[in-house]
C-alpha cells in the first residue's frame, strides 16, 4: 500500500498527446537531450480531437496519479480544428470533474508544438513536481481497492 511519504512516492503520469505537435515536440526534447522525470509515459493519438474523456477516467481508474493532455496550439492543428473541439470538451469535462470533487491539479492541459521540446520537458517536470506534492491519488485508489473486492466478491 502506498503511503503519503513523499520521498518514496513516484507519481504515475499518463500523457495523452497528438501525433503532429506534442508527440513531435517530445521527440525534439529527446533529440535535444533535455532531461526530465521518467514518471510520464506517452500514448499517441492522431489528434487531440481523438482523445476521449473516458480514457482520462480510465487512467484514474487504473491508478494514474496524474494526467497530461497536450496537442497543437490553436490554429496549428494538423486537422485545422480538432484541438478547438477538444478544448471545448475539456472545458466542460474539467468543470464536471471539479464539481464531483476530483482534484483538477492532477490534470494538466497544454499546447506543446513540434518546436517546443523545452516546453515539453518543463510541463512534465512541473506536473511531476505538483503531483509529488499532492501525493498519490488516494481518493481513487480507495475506490479501486473496493471495486476489486466487489468484482471478485461478485464472481
Amino acid at each position: 500500500m502506498e503511503t503519503n511519504n513523499n520521498n518514496s512516492f513516484e507519481p504515475k503520469v499518463v500523457a495523452f498527446v497528438c501525433n503532429w505537435c506534442t508527440y513531435a515536440g517530445a521527440d525534439l526534447t529527446g533529440t535535444s537531450r533535455i532531461k526530465y522525470a521518467p514518471n510520464v509515459k506517452i500514448i499517441r493519438f492522431p489528434c487531440t480531437g481523438r482523445i476521449d474523456y473516458m480514457l482520462l477516467m480510465k487512467a484514474f481508474a487504473n491508478g494514474a496519479d496524474g494526467i497530461i493532455v497536450s496537442g497543437c496550439h490553436p490554429n496549428d492543428c494538423h486537422y485545422t480544428s480538432g484541438n478547438f473541439h477538444a478544448r471545448r470538451r475539456w472545458m466542460i469535462f474539467r468543470n464536471l470533474c471539479d464539481f464531483i470533487g476530483m482534484d483538477m491539479n492532477r490534470v494538466v492541459f497544454s499546447w506543446v508544438s513540434a518546436a517546443e521540446g523545452a516546453k515539453w520537458a518543463e510541463i512534465v517536470n512541473t506536473t511531476v513536481d505538483t503531483i509529488r506534492q499532492l501525493g498519490p491519488a488516494t481518493s481513487f485508489q480507495k475506490l479501486i481497492k473496493n471495486s476489486v473486492f466487489e468484482e471478485v466478491g461478485n464472481e
Binding site: N75, F84, H85, R87, R88, R89, S110, W111, I123
Partner: peptide
C-alpha cells in the same frame, strides 16, 4: 450541439 462546434476565441485560461 455545444460540443459539435467551437469558436476560435473559446475560453482557454486553463491550458498551459
Amino acid at each position: 450541439n455545444v460540443l459539435a462546434t467551437f469558436k476560435t476565441e473559446d475560453h482557454e485560461n486553463f491550458i498551459r
